[in-house]
Computed example of a mutant assay.
Amino acid sequence: MSSSSAPSKSRSTTTPTTSDRRVTRAAALVAALLGGVLAVVALADQQGPQRLMEHAEPIYAAEGVDVGPGVLYGLLYTASAVAVLVWLGVAGVVRSRARWMAPVAMCAALAVDAVLALALLLVREYDARIFPPVWGLLALLPMLPGLVALVRSLGERRER
């Protein structure tokens, strides 16, 4: 019989394991991938039915402004590129040895995603929304695995 009756903690519960970091990093990479979905859908719309232009042209035409598709689709491509780059940066931070930075980087990435999505959901010109809500909702997609990555990262920190 052991002289100590308290259970000993195993190493896996006191320090984050490599598999924990891999899952967190994978969630950040999935967030980056979902950030690219906005660009893919925008490209498909621009090359196909141009629903965004069908929505926006009457808004601008009423004011006598001729808006080209490059401007509106360019904004979507830029928002998508920012989301992808931010989450790739987070994945790099998770992989690095500075693990204390991972939750900070994830919070920053989630804030960037929220700002991008809110801009696409709420931006108005000539008293009308320029982008239909689907574009803002697509910009929110990276937040889902991003939140998973944040929760896992915070869980890793608590287990230490």
Rank of each mutant, 00 (worst) to 15 (best):
S80P: 07
K9P: 08
R157T: 05
S8Y: 08
A79M: 07
L75E: 11
G74S: 06
R152V: 03
E156L: 06
L118P: 00
A105P: 01
A81G: 12
R152N: 05
Y77G: 10
V112E: 00
A128N: 12
A149D: 02
S10K: 13
L76R: 10
R22M: 13
G68H: 10
R97G: 03
D113A: 13
A26I: 13
P133H: 07
L52H: 09
R157W: 09
G92T: 02
A149W: 05
G89S: 02
L88W: 03
S10M: 14
A31G: 10
R97I: 00
S96G: 10
L140H: 00
A114K: 02
L116G: 04
G48T: 06
F131E: 10
P69D: 13
S19H: 15
A102P: 07
D113I: 01
P7H: 15
R99T: 10
R21T: 09
V23D: 09
L33W: 08
L147P: 00
M106D: 00
L110G: 10
V93N: 01
M143A: 15
R157P: 01
L137N: 03
S8K: 15
P142Y: 02
A81N: 02
R157E: 12
S3A: 14
L120F: 13
P58V: 04
R22W: 11
W100P: 00
R11P: 11
P103W: 00
